[in-house]
Design a protein around this nucleic acid. Sequence first.
RNA 1: GCUCCCUUAGCUCAAUUGGCAGAGCAACUGACUCUUAAUCAGUAGGUUCAUGGUUCGAGUCCAUGAGGGAGCACCA
Length: 542
Amino acid sequence: MTLTAPSMTDQPSPSDDEASRDQSFLEAARRAKLARIIELGHDPWGTRFDDRQLIGEIRARASEIVYRKADGANITLPSLETEEERAAFRPWIAEQGAGEIVGPQVRAAGRIILSRDKGKLLFIDIRDMTGQLQLFIGRDQVGESWDLAQCFDLGDIIGVDGTLRRTKTGELSIFADRLHILTKSIETPPEKHSGLQDAELRTRQRYLDLTYNEGVLDRFLDRTRIVSSIRKTLGDRGFVEVEGPTLHTIAGGAAARPFTTHHNTLDLDLFMRIALELHLKRLLVGGVERVYELGRVYRNEGISPKHNPEFTMLEVYQAYGDYRSMMDLTEECICEAIHAIRGAGDGKPTSYSIEFAGKAVDFKPPFKRATYAELFQQHAGVDPTDSAAVVALAKKLGIETAGRHPDVIKNDVFEAKVEDALEGPIFVIDYPASICPLTKRKASDPAVAERFELFIGGMEIANAYTELNDPDLQEELFRSQLAGMSDEDSMAKMDHDFIRALRHGMPPAGGLGIGIDRLVMLLTGTQSIRDVILFPVLRPEK
RNA sequence: GCUCCCUUAGCUCAAUUGGCAGAGCAACUGACUCUUAAUCAGUAGGUUCAUGGUUCGAGUCCAUGAGGGAGCACCA
C-alpha cells in the first residue's frame, strides 16, 4: 500500500464517511486550501482585526480620490455616475498625461461574495454590514499576500489593507497591499445570482438568507429601527418600559391557547404568557401611570403567513387617558417609525405612502375613523341593530348561529364581510360591548364598548380600549366568559389576584396593543410574517 | 387537525406520452494585470425526499411516511 501526499485534486475515499459524501468533493477542495493557509503561516480561523473601517464609511471617502500628475498637481476625478461617464473614464485618464490615481489608506473586512480571477489579477467583492466593495489584487502589487489569495473561496471572511482608488473602468476599489484570512468557510455558498430561493432553506439557514439574498438584512435592520423608534416615541412621552413575567400560573389577557411548561423544584405547571395586559394593569394600580412592555408572547395555535407561535406585542397603558388618547399615540408611534426607516437626518419623510401587497397605503395622519356600526352597514349592507337581518345574512354566509350570542354572530359577519375590505389605515371604533370583556362601556350607551381596532391592508394592527376598572363588573364578565368555554380550555381560569388589584383601585386608563410583527410587515412591504421574524418556528430537520 | 400543491447535483432550475437524468452557477485543471453575474477550453460531480407497489422499463403512475408552501379551522 502506497501513501501519497494530499493535494487539491485528490478525491476522498468514498466509503468511510457516507454522511459527508455528497459534499465531500467540494469540501475537500476548501479543506486543502485551509491546510495550505496554515502552511503559509496564517490562522484560518483568524484573530482580532483592529481599526477596520466600515465599507459604508470607506465608500463615503471616494471624494478624496484624485489624479496626481507627475508634477504633483491634483486633479479632481470626473463624475462616474452613469454608464457613459464610466465609459469615458479610461480615455479621460489617457488625456491627463503622466500620473496616477491616488486615494486614502483604508482597512476593511468582510465576506467574499464574488470573485473574478483574471490570471495575475484578482477582483474580489467583499461585503460587510454596511455594504459591498471591490478589492483589486494584483500579483505584483500584494507581494506575499498573493499566495494567501490563492487559498480564498467564496464565503471566506477576509481583511484587507490598501488604498481606496478607482480602476480604469471607474469602479471604486481597494487596491490591496496586504490581505488577511479572518475565517475560512468550508461550506459552499448559494448560487451567486439567484441566491437562496427555497423558502425552507431561507428560514432554516437564515444566516445564508441574510448574507446572500438582496434586501433581507435591510429588512431586519428596518425591524430594529421600527422597534427602537417606538421605544423612543413612548419614552419621549413619559412612558416607562417594564418587563413582566413570561411564565404565568394563569394565562390571561387574551383568548388564546397557551404553551405549557413545568418548574421542577416547585413541581408547578406554568403557562407561557399569551398577553401582557393583566400584569401591566397591576402596575397601573401600583402607580406606574404610563407603562408599556414590548416583548414576546406565545400562543399555541396554527401557523400561517400572518401567525407565528411566538410573536412580539407592544402593550401600553396610560392612566387618566381613554381609547381616544390611544388613537393619537398609535398614529404617533407609526408615523415616527416610518420616519425612522425612511427619513434622512431630521427631515420628515416627504411621503407616508408605502406599498403593500401591490397597493399604496397612505399613512399620512390623521387616519380615518369610522364606527363599527357604520362600517357594518356600509360593507355588509345590513343594519347591525336589526338582529333578524344579521342572523339571516350570517346563515347565508354559512356562519353557525344556533345558540350563540347575537353580538358574536354579528362579529363573525363583520370579520367575513368588513375586515378584508378595510385597506386603511382606518380606526374602527365603538365595538359591541359583549365581545369586549376587558373594556369600559360608553356612558351614553352601555351596549357599546370604548374600543378601537386599527386595520391596514386587511390586517388588524392595533387594538385599544378604555380600560375597565370596575372590579365587580370585571369579575362578572370573566365569569360569563369562562362559562362559555369547554373543558378543553382548562387553562382558562379566573385571575383572582387581578380582580383584587382592581378592588384596590386602578385609575381610569387607556390601553393599547400593537402587533409589532405585522406592523413591520406593513412598513417593509413584506407578505409573510416568517420574513420579518429571524427564526420562525420550524419542525426539526430530518 | 383537514384540503390542495411542491421536494431532481452544494445552489438555481430543465427532463416530451412511462423509454439512456441534463444545463447554468459553485468546484477542479489550463489561459489571461483593469474585471463587474468577467470570458474561453477541458474535467469531475446524482440513493431524482424516504419506504413499498404497478410495469419489460418509474424523476414521471399508485400507496404510506417526512419536510416545506398556500388555503381552511384555531387565533387577532
